[in-house]
């Protein structure tokens, strides 16, 4: 009988020890969780459902854009793009008698379809929210090109890989603007960090003047926002 009693009492002891461990871990987890929520709360700009989900915001004010293409030119030069290829496309739109321009480029979506359809994971979302392409993994299947509802992706024929706007991540991490933003002399392009509550970009987003483009696509554009007349 003795070994059995020992086993039973060991069970009782381990149950207590288990409870201690559980409560201790639970308390630690709760504290850690509370801490994370507190820290995260500082980064949150607003509770808007279309709030930017990246560290940066690029606002295109179509009420100021005249379609001059300076942004396209600057981008093409910076990225050494061949003739006929651009990361930025300027669409000509008509609203009755009113003609306006819509520059479209990668929206750096939070739920980027290009990243989810890519078979090799060459396209991925960087921690800053910028969607990037690892050209060492890309096989050039063009599934991403087909899957992007903003038609933001191009194909580099020479290297056989997909390519697109990368938000001049090297510039922006240094605190500078992307090339397209600096190129616009009419102030149709605004850029800023989303954690700076005083910045113009944050104000425009908070006020609802700058909105995601085609939110019905369901991809949750992360970085780009548009000011469109009458919206």
């Amino acid at each position: 009988m003795r070994p059995r009693r020992v086993i039973v009492s060991q069970k009782k002891l381990s149950r207590r020890a288990f409870l201690r461990y559980a409560l201790g871990t639970g308390a630690a987890a709760a504290a850690g969780g509370a801490g994370l929520v507190a820290l995260h709360g500082v980064e949150e700009v607003s509770a808007r459902s279309d709030a930017p989900t990246a560290q940066y915001a690029l606002i295109i004010d179509t009420t100021k854009c005249v379609g001059c293409g300076a942004c396209v030119e600057a981008c093409n030069i910076r990225n050494h793009l061949p003739e006929g290829q651009s990361y930025i496309h300027i669409l000509s739109k008509e609203d009755g008698a009113n003609e306006w321009f819509l520059p479209v480029q990668c929206q750096h979506c939070a739920e980027a379809p290009c990243a989810s359809v890519c078979p090799t994971r060459a396209t991925y979302r960087h921690e800053s929210g910028v969607v990037l392409i690892n050209d060492k993994l890309c096989v050039g299947c063009k599934y991403c090109e087909v899957a992007c509802p903003y038609q933001a992706r191009i194909f580099d024929e020479k290297r056989g890989v997909a390519d697109k706007c990368w938000l001049c991540l090297d510039y922006v991490q240094e605190g500078r603007n992307p090339a397209c933003v600096d190129a616009c002399v009419l102030g149709a392009r605004l850029f800023g960090r989303v954690d700076d509550a005083t910045s113009e970009v944050v104000q425009l987003i908070e006020s609802g003047k700058a909105k995601p483009l085609h939110p019905e696509f369901g991809t949750h554009p992360g970085v780009l926002r548009y000011i469109i007349e009458g919206e």
């Binding site: 989810s116 359809v117 890519c118 078979p119 090799t120 994971r121 060459a122 050209d135 993994l137 890309c138 096989v139 050039g140 299947c141 063009k142 599934y143 194909f155 580099d156 024929e157 290297r159 056989g160 890989v161």
Partner: peptide, 21 residues
């Protein structure tokens, strides 16, 4: 029909990895 996958065929093995696609 592939791009870089034609020139560096070993990349085709990477295509087995992303189960969301």
């Amino acid at each position: 029909d592939l791009g870089a996958g034609k020139m560096q065929p070993w990349r085709i093995f990477y295509m087995f990895t992303h189960f969301e696609s």
